[in-house]
Design a protein around this nucleic acid. Structure first.
Lengths: 197, 197
DNA sequence: TGCATAATTTGACGTGCGTCAAACTTCTTT
DNA sequence: AAAGAAGTTTGACGCACGTCAAATTATGCA
């Protein structure tokens, strides 16, 4: 099977996961609406301050979202891997500028849909709205978990908790970004991992 | 105008805000689905660990959400005032136990809808889904703001930022809860406000 | 009005972790 | 295989803020 076909399968499986079996006509329109895109390490999928014009879902690779604070420091707020949505959700729905940028941490393939096609599709097949709500719900829960994580005061415990709830992050992501995600200095994370704190 | 009629007006205005004009039939079903409820200070609207059976919107009063962490400490994660949704969103949609409890900080009136009626209504009038997505989007943005707030390292700056983005909180909420919301000791917040830090 | 309880302030002290700096290790690229 | 860049570790030092304790002020209720 070619890589393109493979990606298509993945994308369809992704949609099915949220809304169940897809009808012939639904699939037809869906295929007209979705596109695939490749990114190299360091490429931006979404830029902070811009209103997102599309919704992307990771097929392969790893994406990181971050924003720059007033002191110019980069704050990592999310990681997105295979079979996860990776775009500024709230901003996409609310049509406001995104607070965060999304960047490829390694070669990335995504399936994406433009805002226009997205809403056109939903108008045609309203039953898909339910799936959207579910995705949003997952996003909310994920965000809540991160907030909860960040509220743990001790660095050691914060890292411990991360290992507990998202161990895959620790194996795939450079230390710098994990430290940033956990809101601690790189050096502190290093010491925590060495058991020196 | 009676207080009950007044609340009804508020509720309808709230819905209109998200989906525009409401048709006769829509309103009729809506009125069959929604209920009002009163809470006294300290009453729980939602309990952590339970799957929310309803969606509530504040008509009057103030609500606070919090969770208890492993050390038994109470962590405030949100405040909800007039014309805001106040319920565990992600959990409501995803049918998972809520991470947080919601409690009335003062006498509260809410309009609520059961999950059953909620989905029944949406099936009957799918165009309302769009409004739901918007509410979810607002929630996401709100959550993102709080996370961003929490990532500011200095207590002083964290409080300053809160004043900037949600000044109403500072006037309506006891210090203890603000401190908890900002992830700092009550004493630290007191010193920050006195300009001693 | 006065008493009890809650809310906020002030002080003293200790420490976790950020910052700066430098060494060491692991990837890239040619 | 060498040279450079990127990623990670280690050490030294200081201070912001948490904790404990007690004083002061505000609030509710008889």
């Amino acid at each position: 099977m070619s890589s393109a076909e493979n990606h298509l399968q993945t994308a369809i499986a992704y949609v099915s996961k949220y809304i169940g079996n897809i009808q012939e006509e639904e699939l037809e329109l869906l295929l007209q609406c979705i596109r695939f895109a490749n990114y190299q390490k360091g490429d931006l999928l979404y830029r902070h301050g811009e209103i997102p014009k599309s919704a992307s879902f990771v097929i392969t690779g790893a994406v990181r979202s971050y924003y720059i604070d007033e002191e110019g420091k980069e704050n990592t707020v999310g990681f997105y891997f295979e079979n996860e949505p990776a775009f500024p959700y709230g901003s996409f729905v609310e049509l406001v500028p995104a607070a965060a940028s999304f960047v490829a941490m390694e070669p990335v393939v995504v399936v994406w849909i433009s805002r226009h096609d997205f809403y056109h599709f939903l108008e045609t097949f309203p039953r898909f709205e339910t799936g959207i709500a579910k995705v949003l719900g997952e996003y909310l829960i994920k965000g809540g978990q991160h907030l909860k994580l960040m509220r743990i005061d001790s660095s050691r415990e914060r890292y411990k908790k991360l290992l507990e709830i998202q161990p895959e992050i620790v194996t795939r992501v450079p230390l710098t970004y994990i430290a940033s995600y956990l809101g601690m200095a790189l050096e502190t994370l290093s010491r925590v991992r060495a058991g020196k704190l």
